[in-house]
Each structure stands twice: as C-alpha cells, then as structure tokens.
Write a protein that binds this DNA or RNA. Structure first.
Lengths: 222, 222
DNA sequence: TAGATTGTTAATCGATTAACAATC
DNA sequence: TAGATTGTTAATCGATTAACAATC
C-alpha cells in the first residue's frame, strides 16, 4: 500500500567491501596492461556472479559500455571516488600496545589513501617517543593534536575496558569515523560511523567452521 | 514442489560471530555474579532482537527454560562446544613480519582457546629466533613441525603474492583451517575452511561510510 | 495462579541471481 | 551485421523479525 521509503534502492551493507575487491582486481589488471574488462571477468576473479558486479556498480551510476564492458582506466577512479579513497585520510591511532604498534608498522594502509600521522597512549612513558616514524602523544593531548594535525579518523587499539571511553574522546575531538580493534562493542552517535574488527571473534568463526565440518564428516552420508 | 534440501534449517553465516558475542556477554555477566539471563537482556546488550538470540541458539538445541530464561553456568559451555572452543587449538603462524609479530605478541587469542605454538618465515635469518616466546622456523620445515607439534590451524600473515602458495603448504601439512590476513583471496579445498580479514578493505569500508554520510548531510532534506 | 519467557512457525524484509531489452 | 555485454526489472533465495502456544 505504501512504498514509504527510499527513492533509490538501499545499498546492501556488503557492497563496499566488494567494491574494494573490484578495485584491487582492476589495479592488478591495469598493471598487467589490460585496458578493458567485463562483469563476467571481474566476477570470476572475485568469486561472485557477473550480475552481482553489475548490480553493485549500478547503485552508483552507469560506468560500462554495453557490448564492450568497462574501461579500466575510467572505472578505477570512479570506485575510488565512491569509496572515498580519492583523497588522503589522516588517521590517529589510540593505544600503542602490541596491536597498535603493529598497525603503526603496517605498510598496507598507505597504498590505499590512509596515513596514520599521530598515535596516543595513556602510558605517560610512551609520550614523546616515536614508533615507526609516528610521534606518540599523551592521550590528554588527543583533542589538541586532532585539531592541529587535521586528523579525521581514529583507530582504537586499546583494551576492551577502555574502548568506549576512547571512542567518546575521539568523537569529542571531531573524528569523522572510528575503526575499532578492541574486543568490545562501542556505541557512537549516528553521525560518526564505525567499523569493528574483533580478531578473537574471527578466530572463533574459523573454529566453528572447522568443528561443524568435522561433525558433518563424522555423520557420514546423512 | 521439491523441498530438496536441508533436513534442518541452514545456519546463516553470521550466526557464529553472534555466538561469540553472546559468549563474551555471558562471561561478563558470570563475573558479575549474575546466574540467569534472558534473550531480551542478551539481545539488548548486543544490539540485536530477542528473537534473533532465541533463533540463533535454536539452531543448536534447547538451552533455555520457558518463563525463566537461560542459566548462565549451563549456557556458557554449550556455546563453547558449538564454537569448538571447548578445546585448545594449536596454531602455526606463517609470516613473521610486522603483522605476524603483532599477532604473536597479542595476548587476546589465548583467552579463547587458541595457542600459537610455532611460527614460520621464508627469511632464513629469522629461523631459530624467538618472538614473544614462540620459536620461528624456516618455512621449509612447515610440514614437519605441523606434524610433530600437532598444529591444526594456520595463520597467514605474508604479503599478498605469497598467500596462495602458503595456503597450499598449510593444506599439504594437514591444517584443518586457515586464517588469512594477506590482502588476497585464497582458494582452498572445501575440506579446509578459511576466514579472511583484510585490514585495508575494512578501512575502506569506514571511508565509504564516512563519505556516504557526508554526502547525505550535504544534500540536506530529501 | 499470573506473569514471564522459551522454542518455533509464519510473515516480512533484504540481498542475490536470472532474464532480457537496449546498445555498442 | 552478429556477437557481446550492459543496466535494470522481476524472480528467487536467505535471513531477520513478529507472533503465539507451550511451559515454568
């Protein structure tokens, strides 16, 4: 009786991750000197259907040429624009423990438009030190440094107990988004999106899959 | 015309991750001395509906008491059993770079039934060293050490180019499951499940959410 | 008992896949 | 032109939510 809702289709939550993978694949093809591709080729490389690829891109515009496919040199910047990685994001990291240190040392982010330019820790002994070329500040300076260095995103790599508190500090400091590695759900205003990765949960997912598969095998035929 | 398929309902892919979160919440409640909970309380803490909680548990059995709820001391071991974390998993890690080192130092896994007891690297200079108490072996010894130490799961933390090759080595060595941190899709036999986490993809997901939200805000009303 | 809460079926919602006219 | 491939609508599939009898 009442369609009531969105003028354009709602975008499924999984689309952004698939766009990242399409982008990786396109960059790889470009390096190989390929200039044109199709939804079929892209889908095959990614393990999704050609229809999925076309639908995903279709949420954002018409980028292809019927009969021809997609021109890689055109499609790459379109996807970067959609993902928001056509700019450099300045990122502050909170919690210079083992995981935080690893993230500071990890080179993978900078290839994709992210630069961690400041780190913070509650341990006063770390303030003033450098990790992998990034200055570590006292957490009490978070708001000041966020403003002075124009930081936009925050990474939380503190213990679970401190996660919500740090999240609140980041929001207060004007962070536009939060990447949470602490094994605890954080609650933020809807104006500040967050993505959480809990490594133990992922490992338990693997354990579940292995155990379930073993159970099925044991059962034999059915 | 033909139901054709599963005798019991297929289990949605997201269930295992939610079970992990239920478990965390139950452990927290137990520490606080709470003995009984309900699907409503659990759902509220996790940000899901009570129906979701009951449905998720319902895939695996009847654990609650109508009118009363769930007895925490009983439910915790049931979920551990379902997830397969009622045992100790021995894990081998391949790729002792910055991320691999961080994972070796990370204490979070051991609380949940996982122990990384051996590490491997292709760099011969690392063989024989220790990182966070774990011996690093040459990757050429992978199969031998997997067998001698009874390793069951493998973590891949090598560069993208080497991911598939390492995955194949792990399968050959008898790994029952693979946790892949390399930013590359790996293909394994269906008898060896895998879980992949690509940190750059997750960060791009955040960038996408922030950019989309900013775009919506700018549009104003509509 | 009355109130609460489960387990489970049916209804709804959302995401993926199939199909095909339009187009190069 | 004939063959290929897009963009998009309709059909299918899968997951979540609502509803409620059964139960404590």
């Amino acid at each position: 009786m009442k369609p009531q809702k969105a003028p354009s289709d709602a975008i499924p939550r999984a689309v952004a991750a698939r766009l990242s993978h399409y982008l990786r694949c396109l960059e790889e093809l470009e390096r190989q000197g390929v200039t044109t591709t199709s939804s079929r080729q892209l889908g095959k490389a990614l393990g999704v259907t050609a229809a999925q690829v076309r639908k995903d891109l279709g949420y954002f515009g018409q980028f292809g040429f019927p009969g021809l496919g997609y021109k890689i040199v055109q499609l790459i910047p379109e996807i970067r624009r959609i993902l928001g990685t056509d700019k450099l994001w300045r990122v502050g990291l909170v919690g210079v423990g083992s995981l935080g240190t690893a993230l500071l040392r990890y080179k993978g982010f900078s290839n994709h438009g992210f630069r961690i330019t400041a780190a913070f820790d509650s341990n006063p002994e770390l303030a003033g030190t450098q990790v992998s070329g990034v200055s570590v500040h006292s957490i009490t300076d978070l708001e000041r440094v966020f403003a002075s260095e124009g930081l936009e995103l925050g990474i939380i790599s503190v213990p679970a107990e401190a996660a919500q508190e740090v999240a609140d500090l980041l929001v207060a400091a004007g962070a536009k988004g939060v990447f949470n590695f602490a094994p605890r759900r954080i609650v933020l205003p809807t104006s500040v999106p967050d993505v959480s990765v809990d490594l133990s949960v992922e490992l338990e997912r693997l354990s579940f899959l292995v155990s379930s598969l073993a159970a099925v095998m044991k059962e034999g035929g059915e």
